[in-house]
């Protein structure tokens, strides 16, 4: 009896904290989203779905994530491959790549906004050497979102690199040796051995990266304020403005719950696409075999 209870008791503090700080706020938000003037209603959703701004924000959010998530994962993976080599000085590069993550988002945003500044920013000064006219960057509706993608990737890649690097290091060296004996080239080894063996790590990075980018709005708040012309206005920033600038908690709750649904849906797709099907199939087969055995 004691042994049976022990695991649950050990899990209880974490479970309680999750309930208080995660599940309770989510439940309250969902409840708020369905209440209009004290009655259960879909009014908040009707209002939000009727707004052009909401659809524009949704478009921006999806566009931002569709580009940022794969880009960050590819860059992080390439960086992880580089720093996983057992060559002299790899540790220094690992640290250098990781440093941007240690910089606060506010500082990073300020630094990049100075670099991207229209008047006298270092990037425009550099471009002028080649006779390229000054670019609007954060002030141009066609460029602002991509400037934020650059900023976020600069800051985030080092962090995701650490997980991928741990995954690479976790692969048994005998697998590499076997590939080498078989005469596989480095790209072939990476493609046919490293990537398939890191599916679980990729799944984690993919889900965690999508969640963090879906909820990101600090650069939009600090530099562009969602502009120019809503081109960087992501759903999370719109929700923030609703709650803290317009004191419209119901609209905020409706937007946040839609965001939550999208996030859950994307995560499920990612689980399905990147999940360990072989392991699952093996488990199923084992169960079937066991059942047959019992029947026999």
């Amino acid at each position: 009896m004691k042994n049976k209870c022990a695991p649950y008791l050990l899990l209880l503090p974490a479970f309680l904290l999750i309930c208080i700080f995660k599940i309770y706020p989510v439940a309250t938000t969902l409840q708020q989203a369905f209440i209009v003037d004290g009655h259960l209603s879909l009014g908040n959703y009707q209002r939000v779905f009727a707004e052009k701004t909401f659809w524009k924000c949704l478009e921006v959010t999806l566009k931002f994530n569709i580009v940022t998530v794969p880009l960050q994962i590819v860059i992080s993976f390439l960086m992880a491959l580089l720093v996983s080599n057992n060559i002299k000085g790899a540790g220094i590069f690992r640290t250098i790549y990781y440093i941007p993550f240690a910089v606060s988002i506010t500082v990073a945003v300020m630094v990049w906004s100075l670099m991207f500044q229209y008047n006298g920013g270092i990037i425009n000064s550099f471009l002028s050497i080649f006779g390229i006219p000054a670019q609007g960057f954060f002030n141009d509706k066609k460029q602002a979102l991509w400037c934020i993608v650059v900023l976020c990737s600069w800051k985030g890649c080092g962090y995701w690199m650490m997980f991928l690097m741990a995954g690479i290091k976790n692969i048994d060296s005998s697998v590499y040796e076997a590939a080498k004996i078989d005469g596989a080239s480095y790209p072939r080894t990476v493609w046919s051995i490293v990537i398939p063996l890191m599916k679980r790590v990729f799944l984690f990075v993919c889900v965690a990266n999508t969640s963090s980018n879906m909820l990101l709005f600090a650069p939009m708040q600090l530099v562009t304020e969602g502009g120019p012309r809503n081109s960087t206005n992501v759903l999370m920033y719109e929700a923030y403005k609703s709650a803290f600038r317009y004191a419209d908690m119901a609209r905020c709750a409706a937007i946040v719950s839609v965001l939550l649904l999208i996030l859950v849906a994307i995560s499920l797709v990612q689980f399905f696409a990147l999940g360990d099907h072989d392991a699952r199939d093996a488990k199923k087969a084992a169960k079937k075999a066991a059942r047959r055995g019992v029947i026999a």
């Binding site: 609007g136 002030n139 141009d140 509706k141 304020e225 969602g226 502009g227 120019p228 012309r229 403005k241 600038r245 317009y246």
Partner: peptide, 13 residues
């Protein structure tokens, strides 16, 4: 918020 965006967008061309 809206009018600030009008001025900002106008400024940005």
């Amino acid at each position: 918020s809206v009018i600030n965006a009008v001025w900002s967008d106008t400024r940005n061309g």
